[in-house]
Design a protein around this nucleic acid. Structure first.
Lengths: 139, 139
DNA sequence: CTCCTTACACTACAAATTGTAGTAGGTACA
DNA sequence: TGTACCTACTACAATTTGTAGTGTAAGGAG
């Protein structure tokens, strides 16, 4: 279930998925259990306008094809659940992207990193300093 | 000329552009001057198999539409050149992506950053440490 | 001045991605 | 036995990127 893109626009899951896909993954990950297509469709309805059942089904089955969801056929209906937890997913993406960023931009990214941390949450600067110390100590 | 995606696959300009677009931008940026479509087409031929003139033109004009290239009509032919230097482009992307990464992943990214630096080029760890010190001093 | 070469514009198509939804088929239960 | 529901299959639109044909205009060759 390799991701392909990190989008500049949007936030959260919308960085990785299409808008409908993102809403669906959000629901699946929030419910922590296994849901049927119907379940997901109804939860979507709470949010906004009605979504066609077939639309939801198609998107969910495509997520299965991509290895993001797992599908278990049970008599009448099928149960879907994410292959990995949201935390594991985010962990993977963060790791992958951070590595790619460094490989691609090297020292340029280092400079920007400090600025970004200072801008978003200066507390992270201390955390980073700490981590560096630990890393260097272990060598 | 807002970019939309950062691709997990590939490297260099292929992270931001399609394969042909990337080759074209590479040529434009390397030549530092203004090139005609023909120029670009010929340079592409050095690399690999022949590219249809119209193909190159279409892609280049799309890059103009996207605000990445600038086009100057001169009598018979047109001259194309990048709107910004490669360095400026990379600078912008690095900054944007780094900020997005931090906004999206916060402390998760901080941890991965240290690992990534250690893995790719440990010297960058010292550089980062230095930058943090400077940043904190200025406050 | 006429014709040909060349470059450009316009148009189109294919594959992939994502959202959308119709139709058909099968199963269970009333 | 028929109806409601769930699923599979199929299809289409928009977008992105690569590809390329056809038509047109302009400038130089003769």
């Amino acid at each position: 279930m390799k991701m392909h893109n990190f989008k500049y626009e949007g936030s959260g899951l919308n960085r990785f998925f299409g808008p409908l896909e993102a809403k669906i993954m959000e629901i699946l990950w929030n419910e922590a259990g296994e849901l049927t297509i119907k379940d997901v469709q109804l939860k979507l309805d709470n949010d906004a306008k009605s979504n066609n059942f077939n639309t939801v089904m198609t998107v969910m089955n495509r997520l299965v094809d991509k290895g993001i969801l797992q599908k278990k056929s049970v008599a009448r209906s099928s149960l879907y659940r994410p292959v990995v937890t949201k935390e594991a997913f985010m962990e993977t993406q963060s790791k992958e992207l951070t590595l790619d960023l460094i490989e691609e931009f090297g020292s340029l990214a280092v400079t920007h990193m400090v600025d970004a941390l200072d801008k978003v949450d200066p507390g992270l600067l201390d955390q980073l300093e700490q981590k560096i110390k630990e890393m260097k100590k272990d060598r």
